[in-house]
Design a protein around this nucleic acid. Structure first.
Lengths: 145, 145
DNA sequence: AACAGTAGGACTAATTTAGTCCAGCTAGAC
DNA sequence: GTCTAGCTGGACTAAATTAGTCCTACTGTT
């Protein structure tokens, strides 16, 4: 099944929660209990998200994480890159992969590359803003975007 | 990692191979050895693809599978549906899923639904023809499509 | 100095995906 | 008619990935 993993789900949840706190920092504990996700895992997720600069960490007592970007500036590609590394929609696209048995007569590397590009493009053009703003719209309207 | 699974990769490979045989049937054995993929698995893949009508099976000696559609008529959504069932980009989108811990205050079902729709649309508009025709084009040109 | 919190490595458990095995059915070739 | 190549499909095993836990160290505010 083509799907986005839990880390990304949790990351999106947490960022949306942070956004609702405006300029205040929220600790991992607070975010985890509010979003209903495992604390230890969310901690890892936030570390990675911090590394791409979407949030900053505040150490010490009453510390936590703060958003450093607006929802418009955060897109799914960035989140995915932070939590999962580069998008490779098929194994044979991995750099240095020499194990592909169909290498010589391969008719699929390029096709999969096309798909890969399309997905990257989709993720890049999908901002958190875009995802979060849909709450009030019906699915039907959403598909017209 | 967001990726398409082996069954889909193998299915695309096999369908492109079948296309190259024009109207002749090819057995699973022939396809498997030409595409360099496991025979037993490809056999399952072809059965599923048959069930959505992209190919027909010819029984008996010198039998095999034949394409019943053109590459333009076959899209990634159909192949995915055949081999993987409906696309659900996040677990909380599964029908009847009541285990989501963040259910009551969930801010992510709709966002993930938006993404889901976008991916479905992308898969639906990506035909085999479109994928296979890119062989000669550079990746740069491809992204402009 | 105490405390609340982040940082991050190592590990285990759970789930999913990939792949195999085998017995049965189908129809064309002889 | 019977042989045989090949499709059908269920049950099973193995491999890989993903999810989640645990523990120790570091950081900075009060």
């Amino acid at each position: 099944m083509i799907k986005v993993n839990k880390k990304i789900e949790y990351g999106v949840l947490a960022l949306l929660y942070l956004n609702s706190k405006e300029d205040k920092a929220a600790s991992v504990r607070e975010m985890a209990s509010n979003c209903g996700v495992p604390e230890a895992l969310l901690s890892k997720v936030m570390q990675s998200i911090k590394n791409v600069g979407y949030v900053s960490a505040v150490y010490g007592n009453h510390g936590g994480y703060k958003l450093t970007k607006t929802l418009e500036e955060i897109n799914l590609l960035g989140i995915t890159l932070a939590l999962d590394g580069p998008i490779q929609v098929a194994d044979c696209l991995k750099p240095g992969n020499d194990t592909c048995p169909a290498k010589q007569a391969c008719t699929i590397v390029d096709p999969m590359n096309v798909l890969n590009q399309k997905i990257i493009e989709l993720f890049q053009t999908t901002s958190l803003q875009q995802l979060s703003a849909q709450k009030e719209l019906s699915v039907k309207e959403v598909t017209l975007l």
